[in-house]
């Protein structure tokens, strides 16, 4: 959608609910995108750099989930 068509919520309740929904969507996207990258053979440091977070943070947040899903993970470098 072009920027000029993007609606701006007038009601604070709608604006605040949009924040909640965007955070949830961002979390869902992060889970899916990190898994997609790791399945494609990306390393933790590369995923961390792409997300702009430390590799410890990305490892802590996603490693258990991916290991239990059977994703073959590259060793941390």
């Amino acid at each position: 959608m072009p920027a000029e068509e993007t609606p701006v919520p007038k009601d604070p309740a709608d604006a605040l609910a949009a924040v909640v929904a965007l955070r949830r969507l961002a979390d869902q996207l992060e889970d899916a995108a990190v898994e997609q990258a790791m399945r494609a053979g990306w390393s933790w440091p590369d995923v961390a750099e792409a997300l702009g977070v430390t590799r410890q943070a990305v490892h802590k947040k996603h490693s258990k989930r991916l290991i239990s899903a059977g994703v073959t993970l590259r060793r941390r470098q």
């Binding site: 959608m1 068509e5 993007t6 609606p7 701006v8 919520p9 709608d14 604006a15 609910a17 949009a18 909640v20 929904a21 965007l22 969507l25």
Partner: peptide, 8 residues
Amino acid sequence: HSLSAVGV
């Protein structure tokens, strides 16, 4: 609905 309020 909440996402659509910000064009997503």
